[in-house]
């Protein structure tokens, strides 16, 4: 795809680490190994990775500029809350919660599809404005639906977002997006970023590529929203505003556009930075956008922009010497 660090990934090491990580998450939940604050931060971290890598698909790999990701989060959050509080509250969380999360993702994905349709005609600035309008419509739309609590918010959501579920969804997101970007579908998305007309002339169905990017991105945005709702146990429309979108943008452009490793890095840095800045109160939201501005001036593609850590790259992408004749 782009450039990665030189060496092929060691076989199996990543899988072993992954298994160990999931086991650790399970153990932490089961035996209460960490205190509530640490657990909360870890879950936030996972959700941030999902948000960051999914927005990166549209803003990094496809090179558009969406400010609407918080809107997809909101859709996922509210729909999953409806499922778990109002529609299937009798269900066992073991199957009901995944269903709620998937439902939230599908809802966001469906709306993402519509936004993708709009991206056929409009690009660049105007598409950015459309995503902004979408965000405001979702927010003020929810404010006008008394069924989900209107401006006061949606109360009484159970805490279903365990560390293990978060980890599972995080891995699933990374896995899906990695397989997507290293497939012909993902290369089509990148080609659209590079040159839409040339891509089209080279057989890339640019419309399908755009829809794919928007749907996958918004699906996982919705998933993250669903996890977020069941972590906070209380959501209201003003949580999902432009500030939330900006937070995700900071992660993407800090870590690096068009990079899985960058997304993880961005989410990590952001999560811990924003925890560290917590005592500053609203000044935190002065410093974060300031970082974004400085990044744009000094390193517009982020730390890992367009580069990849070799462990996230499929083995086959490293041509062996003997293969070359």
């Amino acid at each position: 795809m782009t450039r990665w660090l030189q060496h092929p990934p060691p076989r199996g090491v990543l899988l072993a680490l992954l298994a160990a990580g999931l086991a650790a998450c399970f153990a932490i939940e089961q035996f209460g190994l960490v205190d509530d604050y640490v657990r909360f931060v870890l879950i936030t971290f996972g959700i941030n990775i999902i948000l960051c890598v999914s927005l990166n698909l549209v803003n990094g790999w496809m090179g558009e500029f969406s400010v609407g990701h918080a809107g997809f989060m909101a859709l996922g959050a509210y729909l999953s809350a409806c499922v778990s509080v109002k529609w299937l509250s009798w269900g066992d969380p073991l199957w009901m919660f995944p269903l709620a999360v998937i439902g939230g993702g599908l809802m966001a994905g469906a709306v993402g599809f519509l936004l993708g349709l709009l991206s056929f005609k409009t690009r660049g600035d105007y598409l950015a404005i459309i995503t902004l309008a979408f965000l405001m419509i979702v927010k003020s739309g929810i404010e006008n639906i008394p069924y989900v609590g209107g401006p006061r918010g949606f109360l009484g959501i159970d805490n279903h977002t365990t560390l293990l579920w978060t980890a599972v969804w995080t891995v699933l997101t990374l896995w899906t997006i990695r397989n997507l970007v290293y497939s012909r579908f993902g290369r089509g998305i990148v080609a659209v970023r590079e040159d839409e007309i040339a891509a089209n002339a080279m057989g890339v169905d640019t419309r399908k590529a755009k829809l794919t990017a928007f749907v996958v991105s918004s699906f996982f945005g919705g998933v993250a929203g669903a996890l977020f709702a069941h972590q906070l146990q209380f959501i209201n429309p003003s949580v999902f505003d432009i500030v939330k979108s900006t937070e995700i943008l900071v992660m993407v452009y800090l870590g690096g556009v068009g990079s899985l490793a960058g997304s993880i890095l961005g989410a990590t840095a952001f999560t811990f930075l924003s925890q560290a800045l917590q005592p500053l109160g609203t000044w935190r939201m002065v410093i974060l956008p300031l970082i974004l501005v400085l990044l744009m001036i000094f390193r517009p593609r982020g730390i890992m922009g367009m580069r990849e850590f070799s462990w996230f790259v499929p083995q086959r992408e490293f041509p062996k010497k003997e293969d070359k004749k």
Binding site: M1, T2, R3, R184, R187, G188, V190, A191, E194, D195, I197, A198, A199, A201, M202, G203, V204, M306
Partner: peptide, 25 residues
């Protein structure tokens, strides 16, 4: 298939990926 009067490569991608995107067809 075609080429363009003012070259339209996928400039930020590698030589290999340029060809590969067409090959993906």
């Amino acid at each position: 298939a075609r080429t363009f009067q003012n070259i339209r490569l996928f400039r930020d991608l590698t030589v290999f990926d340029n060809v590969r995107i067409a090959c993906d067809a």
